[in-house]
Design a protein around this nucleic acid. Sequence first.
DNA 1: CGCGGAATTGAAAATACTCAAAATTAGTGG
DNA 2: CCACTAATTTTGAGTATTTTCAATTCCGCG
Lengths: 253, 253
Amino acid sequence: MNDLIPSSPVINIGTLKSSCANCSMHQLCLPMGLDDNDISRLDQIIGRRRRLARDERLYQMDEPFRNLYAIRFGHFKTYQVNAAGEQQITGFQMAGELLGMDAISADRHHCDAVALEDSEVCEIPFGRLEELFGHVPTLLRHFHRIMSQEITREQNVMLLLGNMRAEQRFAVFLVNLSARYAARGYSANSFQLRMSREDIGNYLGLTIESISRLLSRYKKQGWLKVDKREVTLLDPVMIKALAAGTEQCSPMA
Amino acid sequence: MNDLIPSSPVINIGTLKSSCANCSMHQLCLPMGLDDNDISRLDQIIGRRRRLARDERLYQMDEPFRNLYAIRFGHFKTYQVNAAGEQQITGFQMAGELLGMDAISADRHHCDAVALEDSEVCEIPFGRLEELFGHVPTLLRHFHRIMSQEITREQNVMLLLGNMRAEQRFAVFLVNLSARYAARGYSANSFQLRMSREDIGNYLGLTIESISRLLSRYKKQGWLKVDKREVTLLDPVMIKALAAGTEQCSPMA
DNA sequence: CGCGGAATTGAAAATACTCAAAATTAGTGG
DNA sequence: CCACTAATTTTGAGTATTTTCAATTCCGCG
């Protein structure tokens, strides 16, 4: 894969390489809250960056665990495969988020991670990160927060899968994406779905047909606009109410 | 609450107090793999033990986070409450397991934890534990494994809720309990359910009626025996096959 | 322009839910 | 220890949400 800026005269590629300080995600990612000195220590252990094409796999279940991965740009999905070969998507990850934490417990990856579009990650050798924890307590604390956040995120998904109807699940999904894009400085009410309808359905415990019907219904109600994968929330208040369970759902058409 | 052994002449209560080395769970709990010296350092930071009666709450959502809790004996459930007041049980915990890790990210508890029977926990002040991490790398590594394990556990529940039918969900639930009791030296095929049918249903994303019907069906098929909350797996191989999805489910009676 | 994957839509079917009633169990006080 | 009451569980019948299966449309790409 070629470098996107192969011959720029003003940018020193050497210093940019793997530099957290220059990364647009450093306020969301692992270096959050670190001072310059500690950031440079983190920089020193960060491995190579890795580019992935759409549909390319970052890691696979049962592969030995060596690195965590911070997403620089792009989107990923993670999914588990059960004995019967069916998959369950456990999350969609975007820039600034960390991949691979589920692998720490067994020293093997517990799921697959696949790029939803052309993406780039920073490889973070976990062994070296652990060494650094002893010297940078702020980093350790932040790492614990990130892991804990992943636990609460998954608990929220359990709540979704365990006792919400289809209409509410989908609303929660949209509100969640909206909030995450907003946190990254993008529009809260207009964004592109990076995953297929099938992926959405799988994640939400629904079929692709259900997702399609939900989109149609939302459209008909005037709550949103869809053009291929471009979604615009026309009535974000309503969608948030649906997500919160405040608003009653009408039965599926 | 009274001490169970108020006047034993041979046991020195003082040294037993909060001693991980003497705890039957120390091979499963936080001190796993620590040498005697490090165990005693951990002991020094462990706060008081806390007894809870059945249905008593250990902590509540939004409460400020101060401690993790290691279960010495007894069982707990953790659940989230959504805006509409409905609850979703996110896990059942038993002796040797750690409670409260979801609170690290926001410095507030993210769920409620309630004792399912009379139980006892060790209070672990998280601030002091963090200090100790700097001095006992083994402890830190094990802590990361425990958090990661919680992440993978929840991913397994997502798989269960997202694409298994009722019969398989219930089989997975039984197999999981069985394995955990076996790991604690108890019978793998005969154990007591510490939670109500309603709790099981809530956890599995099913109604109490469905759980009741599943139990009846399993009984009729000769796969298990139930007497109140005492369950005996008569055909563990079959139940494991159901859980794995190897065996096809018959439709609900 | 046409092929193929993805998405939409419709109709029928199935799984699990709701509501209701009966049965069993647990808890309490005499 | 027993009787009584409350709570939990079981069972049944009818219903609803979502799935499955099938057909069609849409869209990207060669």
